[in-house]
Design a protein around this nucleic acid. Sequence first.
DNA 1: GCACTAAATTGAACATCATTCAATTTCGAG
DNA 2: CTCGAAATTGAATGATGTTCAATTTAGTGC
Lengths: 202, 202
Amino acid sequence: MQAGLSVMSEKGIDAATMQEIAERADVGAGTVYSYFKSKDELAVSVIERVMHDLALRIAEATEAFADAAQVYAYGVRTVIEAATGDLRWRQLLNRPEVIAEAMYRCHGPFAIRDLEKAARAGRFTFSDARLTFKLACYAIVGVSLAIAQQEMAADVIEPAVVRLLCMAGLSEGDARELARRPRPPLAPEARPIALDGPQAGH
Amino acid sequence: MQAGLSVMSEKGIDAATMQEIAERADVGAGTVYSYFKSKDELAVSVIERVMHDLALRIAEATEAFADAAQVYAYGVRTVIEAATGDLRWRQLLNRPEVIAEAMYRCHGPFAIRDLEKAARAGRFTFSDARLTFKLACYAIVGVSLAIAQQEMAADVIEPAVVRLLCMAGLSEGDARELARRPRPPLAPEARPIALDGPQAGH
DNA sequence: GCACTAAATTGAACATCATTCAATTTCGAG
DNA sequence: CTCGAAATTGAATGATGTTCAATTTAGTGC
């Protein structure tokens, strides 16, 4: 189900009509509403699925990292690259707050843990991990949008990562060094045959 | 004109209908479209007006500051407080990217100048002022939303300012000191009888 | 004052969707 | 095979942004 609907990333969230989504999924227009209360909720679900998948792949790729700060840096950079590189993500960027909130919810458990771990190791100096990551999520969406709309060049990604590391409380030098470290490749995208909706009812 | 329309900050941008806006301004529904191409453009104009007004008041209040970093800190904090404190702003937060972009456009000229000035004075260490401020704008909208929706308490404003100062490249200690400095009051809001639209045509 | 034209204004009509719901089909238990 | 509950359908509904032909207003030359 999700799969058929996720193809709202072709035209963007707003441009996708429920009619076309239902058609694509080979169901009636009303059926979609048995699985999602509204178009917005569907959009949230679609975005959360993509975001959750990415969070898992990041966690996998950074398993061997000793430095929690490096895990955080890797995550931030990977998300920005996904958002700006993948054509589907660019369409989803239409709804910045939905993206940012989904990012916060899906990556939060990992990112906040890493932030706190790194803070305990003396790498970061922030006082509130949740706040720091909330700020980061919106900032990430902001740059991603700017890059997607070609307002900024793609080579601002690295400086952006540096700034977000500084925001967490790294010195400029440490941040630059961390952002420059070689990054292991990400596992390929999982797109299984899962077809569950979050809630039902009539 | 703007004035009558700005009263879309009563119900929020989306909930405000063009019908009601036209009524409030005592004109026909079509007339609005002689001044603004679309509802979105109108929203942008409304937000930009508010934002521009605030930018000017901030510039005025910080005229006497010797430290450009302090001007930046004052601006960041004042915007967050306006966005979370003023009932009208909260409604406008529905459109985060519109707010963030308007903030970038209206405050950018001042903020980027201050950032660069402070960088020359050795206070900040960032490499790209535009990028830094773009990140800050979205981050500001992010916290403001979180506070407006009571997901976070209002007392995260100060730590948020600290984080954004760190993002610009201040040390944790300097940032905390700067965020704690006493702040002069803001001039009262100007709401003149200006009634110009950005473009016309039929 | 008047005739005439260009610009501004109007608001009813239109088109587009998200959403609903009464009718129908599907499915499973007895 | 029968019956009832759940799922599905898709035409109808309602809300709203936008358009445009008709009308009013404003301005200019005489």
